[in-house]
Amino acid sequence: MSWRGILTLVLLVAAAISGWSVWTHRPSRNAATTADARSDYLLHDFELVVLDKQGQEAFTLHAPQLERHPGDKTMSLATPVFTIPPAPGSKSGTWEVRSKTGWVSAEGNELRLRGDVVATNAAGGDSVKLATQELNVFPDTKRATSAGDVTITQPGSILRGHGMNALLDSKRIQLKSNVKGRYVPSGG
């Protein structure tokens, strides 16, 4: 074999090895997706009214920042303030819910609030205040749940417990365990 044949064969082998190396060390599609996983959009200092399937107001949201995630269409929030109106015909009044962070499902039917969560309702003279570190709110069904410690403050009483189910329209709140109550006389 001539030196040109040997050189051609060596260059052909080197090209095959280079091609194989480039193919096996290419970035995966998952890495490309992660790099492109930035927000669809960001909102700053905004108010958003979300409607339910019947066209009624499910909740209103005020926050300094909202970030929508393109993959699952959920939204992350910084220091949100939600107002959740009562169902038509209910006398419970509007709930105002504040927290450090928030998350809204793609359909807008679940809110996850974390960090110093406070929910208040002052309708009908029977003010109620819920305080917890985590609260899940379901605006369509006017329900709220918590798996953590909850403090409920009402005129004349303070209740503390672990875990909670609440029907927001009727202000019916059930603490699941470790319930402790304290009578607080009205000042007057």
Rank of each mutant, 00 (worst) to 15 (best):
L11S: 07
L12G: 06
V13H: 04
A14T: 08
A14Q: 10
A15Q: 04
A15G: 01
A15H: 03
I17M: 13
I17A: 13
S18T: 12
G19A: 06
G19M: 08
W20V: 08
W20E: 08
S21M: 14
S21D: 11
V22S: 09
V22K: 10
W23R: 14
W23L: 11
T24R: 13
T24H: 15
H25Q: 11
R26K: 10
R26E: 06
R26N: 09
R26F: 03
P27M: 08
P27V: 00
P27R: 08
R29A: 04
R29N: 07
R29L: 05
R29Y: 01
R29K: 12
R29W: 05
N30C: 08
N30A: 12
A31M: 10
A31I: 05
A32P: 05
T33W: 11
T34R: 14
A35I: 04
D36P: 00
D36G: 05
D36S: 12
D36W: 12
A37I: 07
A37P: 02
A37F: 01
A37L: 09
R38G: 14
R38F: 10
R38T: 11
S39K: 05
S39M: 07
S39H: 07
S39V: 12
D40S: 14
L42G: 05
L43Q: 06
L43S: 05
L43M: 09
H44I: 11
D45I: 06
D45W: 14
F46V: 03
F46L: 10
L48W: 06
L48K: 10
V49E: 13
V49A: 12
V50R: 15
V50W: 13
V50D: 11
V50E: 14
L51R: 14
L51I: 05
D52R: 01
D52H: 02
D52M: 04
D52A: 01
K53W: 08
Q54M: 13
Q54V: 07
Q54P: 06
Q54E: 12
Q54L: 13
G55M: 09
G55P: 00
G55W: 13
Q56C: 04
Q56T: 08
E57I: 14
E57K: 13
A58G: 01
A58T: 05
A58K: 01
T60K: 11
H62A: 12
H62R: 14
H62D: 11
A63L: 04
P64E: 09
P64W: 12
Q65P: 02
Q65C: 02
L66M: 14
L66W: 05
E67S: 15
E67H: 07
E67V: 09
R68W: 02
H69M: 11
P70M: 08
P70G: 15
G71M: 09
G71F: 10
D72P: 04
D72T: 03
D72M: 03
D72H: 04
D72G: 02
K73Q: 13
K73I: 03
K73N: 08
T74K: 02
T74H: 05
M75T: 11
S76C: 04
S76D: 15
A78D: 15
A78N: 15
T79R: 15
T79W: 11
T79Q: 15
T79N: 10
P80W: 00
F82D: 01
T83H: 04
T83D: 06
I84N: 04
I84W: 01
I84M: 00
P85Y: 01
P85S: 04
P85L: 01
P85W: 03
P85G: 02
P86R: 01
